[in-house]
């Protein structure tokens, strides 16, 4: 058995220390070790997008990222999207307004993906939003409302 690693993760602006096996994914580190369950496990194999978080400002899948691998990088989860917690991020507000979710399980991933999608400049048209939001599956079928929410948030953020 390999030696547990003592690592320090910067999550949502806070340094968090944890002792884990090297094989622990970022997703399991967040959910099982750091009590940050906003990032969801939908497939654990890179096929659904529910675990989308930002690493150094870019959207990635936490289920295919080792926790150890992102030591020293800035990790943002849905819990850290609005650090003060007082107000909703424009993307969150647009999701609520357009009813861009039902069960809510894919939603944190959708929101993290949408924030990045707008930041990347990949939200210039509905067609582009659809393509660049396709890495986040939604079984409830909120897609048209997600597109509407991203479109509106893009305007709010521009």
């Amino acid at each position: 058995m390999s030696k547990p690693l003592k690592i320090k993760l910067h999550v949502n602006g806070v340094a968090r220390e944890l002792v884990i096996e090297p094989r622990v994914t970022l997703l399991d580190a967040l959910r099982e070790h750091l009590n940050l369950t906003g990032s969801k496990k939908g497939c654990d194999q890179g096929q659904c997008g529910a675990c989308t978080v930002h690493v150094d400002g870019e959207r990635v899948l936490a289920c295919l990222t080792l926790a150890a691998q992102v030591e020293g990088r800035e990790i943002t989860t849905v819990e850290g999207l609005t650090p003060d917690g007082a107000e909703l991020h424009p993307v969150q507000a647009a999701f609520l307004k357009h009813d861009a979710f039902q069960c809510g399980y894919c939603t944190p991933g959708q929101i993290m993906s949408a924030v990045a999608c707008i930041r990347e400049g990949h939200a210039s048209s509905d067609a582009e939003i659809r393509e660049y939001m396709s890495g986040n599956l939604c079984r409830c079928g909120a897609y048209p409302h997600i597109v509407a929410a991203v479109r509106e948030a893009r305007e709010a953020l521009s």
């Binding site: 890179g46 997008g49 989308t52 870019e58 959207r59 990635v60 899948l61 295919l64 990222t65 993906s113 990045a116 999608c117 990347e120 990949h122 660049y132 939001m133 396709s134 890495g135 986040n136």
Partner: peptide, 9 residues
């Protein structure tokens, strides 16, 4: 290829 997230990785 893949998805935006996977392409960032």
């Amino acid at each position: 290829a893949a998805s935006a997230q996977l392409r960032n990785m």
